[in-house]
C-alpha cells in the first residue's frame, strides 16, 4: 500500500503561481491515488486565498492564519495540522514534475544506520535544467556562516552533469520551499525558530538542529520540482529589506550554532575587523545587518545555551561532511 503524504502550501494570495502549483500536483495525486492531502495555508490574514480559490476549492483543504504571519509560521501551522506523518512542504511558486513523490519517500528510509529527517528534491530554478537550488553547502566566509547554492552560479551549473545531479547525497539542510519531512520530528524540534523571522535561513537552522539531534537531510536527484524563486517575497518586499534579513540571519545562525571556541573567537575578531572595514568602505548593508542581529541576538543565544549540552558538535566537520561540492 502506498504511503500517503500531506502537501502543505503556505500562500499569500491565490495567484497564477499558486494555480500552477496546484495544477502540477493534481495529476500526480490522481496517479498516486494514495489518499494524499493538500493543505493550503492562507497566510493573507484576510481570507483572500480561500475566497479566490475557484475550481481548486474542492481539491484542497484550507487552513486560515488569523493574521499574516510569514512563511515559517504558516508552514509550521500547516505541518502541525497535517493528517499524515510525512509532509511535503511546498512554496506556492513551486511546480512539481511527474513522479516527484516516490523517490523522496524512498529516500526517507535512508541507508542502514542513517536516520533521514528530510528529503529534498532536485529544485530547478525557473525550471532551468542544471540550475539546482537544493544542492546546498554551508561554509564560513569571513567567519560568518553562508549557505551557498553553487549550482545557481554560471560557472558551476554548466559543469554539473546529469549523472552527478541524479545521485542522492547528504546536504546540510532541506530547502523549506520544497522538501518531504517527518512531521513528528519537525514538531519535536520545535518547528522553525521565530528568531529568523520574517524570513530566510529558518530552514538552514531547522536542518542544523535535526543534525544535532542525529538526523540528516538527503538530496534526491530523481525527484524534480521547479521554483520561480522569490516570486512570493521578492514581489512584495523591498530588496533592501530582503538583503538585511538574509545578512542578519547569517549572523544569528552563526551565533546560534558555531560551536568551536576557536572559530567563535575568530568570528568575533572578524566582526570587529569587518565593522571597521565597512565603516571605511561605506558598507551600510553589513553594518545595518550587524546592528539588527545584535538587537535580536537574545533569542538565538538563548537557544544556543539550551542546545549546547546535548546533541552533536563539530560545526566545521558537519559543514565539510555535507558539502556536495
Amino acid at each position: 500500500m502506498k504511503q500517503a503524504i500531506s502537501i502543505v502550501i503556505p500562500a499569500l494570495a491565490a495567484d497564477e503561481s499558486l494555480e500552477q502549483a496546484l495544477g502540477s500536483l493534481a495529476p500526480e495525486l490522481q496517479r498516486r491515488a494514495a489518499g494524499d492531502q493538500v493543505l493550503l495555508v492562507d497566510d493573507s490574514g484576510t481570507g483572500a486565498v480561500a475566497r479566490a480559490l475557484g475550481p481548486w476549492g474542492p481539491a484542497v483543504e484550507l487552513l486560515e492564519m488569523p493574521r499574516n504571519s510569514g512563511f515559517g509560521r504558516a508552514l509550521g501551522a500547516g505541518i502541525a495540522a497535517a493528517r499524515h506523518g510525512l509532509v511535503f512542504a511546498m512554496n506556492s511558486d513551486v511546480r512539481v514534475r511527474p513522479g516527484f513523490a516516490e523517490p523522496l519517500l524512498s529516500a526517507l528510509d535512508g541507508a542502514p544506520g542513517e536516520r533521514v529527517f528530510a528529503a529534498v528534491p532536485r529544485i530547478l530554478l525557473r525550471g532551468e535544467e542544471g540550475r539546482v537550488e537544493s544542492l546546498v553547502s554551508l561554509r564560513l566566509e569571513g567567519g560568518i556562516a553562508r549557505a551557498a547554492q553553487p549550482l545557481l552560479e554560471e560557472a558551476h551549473f554548466r559543469r554539473a552533469d546529469e549523472a552527478w545531479l541524479a545521485q542522492n547525497r547528504n546536504v546540510p539542510f532541506p530547502i523549506g520551499g520544497a522538501c518531504l519531512l517527518r512531521r513528528e520530528l519537525f514538531l519535536d524540534l520545535g518547528g522553525f525558530d521565530p528568531a529568523f523571522e520574517p524570513f530566510y535561513l529558518e530552514d538552514l537552522d531547522l536542518g542544523w538542529r535535526a543534525w544535532r539531534a542525529g538526523w540528516c537531510t538527503r538530496y534526491v536527484g530523481a525527484a524534480v520540482v521547479e521554483h520561480r524563486h522569490r516570486a512570493t517575497i521578492g514581489a512584495r518586499v523591498p530588496e533592501q529589506v530582503v538583503l538585511q534579513a538574509i545578512e542578519r540571519n547569517r549572523l544569528l545562525f552563526t551565533w546560534k550554532h558555531l560551536d568551536d571556541p576557536v572559530l567563535l573567537e575568530e568570528h568575533l575578531r572578524q566582526l570587529a575587523r569587518r565593522t571597521a572595514e565597512a565603516r571605511a568602505a561605506g558598507d551600510r548593508v553589513f553594518l545595518a545587518a550587524l546592528c539588527l542581529a545584535l538587537e535580536d541576538r537574545g533569542k538565538g543565544i538563548a537557544a544556543r545555551r539550551a542546545e549546547s549540552a546535548p546533541g552533536r558538535s563539530g560545526f566545521a566537520r558537519q559543514c565539510r561532511d555535507t558539502d556536495p561540492f
Binding site: R67, G70, P198, G234, R236, V241, A288, E295
Partner: peptide, 27 residues
C-alpha cells in the same frame, strides 16, 4: 532599491521599519 509591486506583508512591516530606521542613520 527594488521597489515592490505588491503591498508589503504585515508580518514584514516591523522588520522593514527597523531596516528603514537604520537606513536613516549616518554611516
Amino acid at each position: 532599491r527594488g521597489a515592490p509591486r505588491a503591498p508589503v506583508p504585515d508580518h514584514v512591516r516591523p522588520f522593514a521599519a527597523r531596516v528603514e530606521a537604520l537606513e536613516s542613520l549616518s554611516l
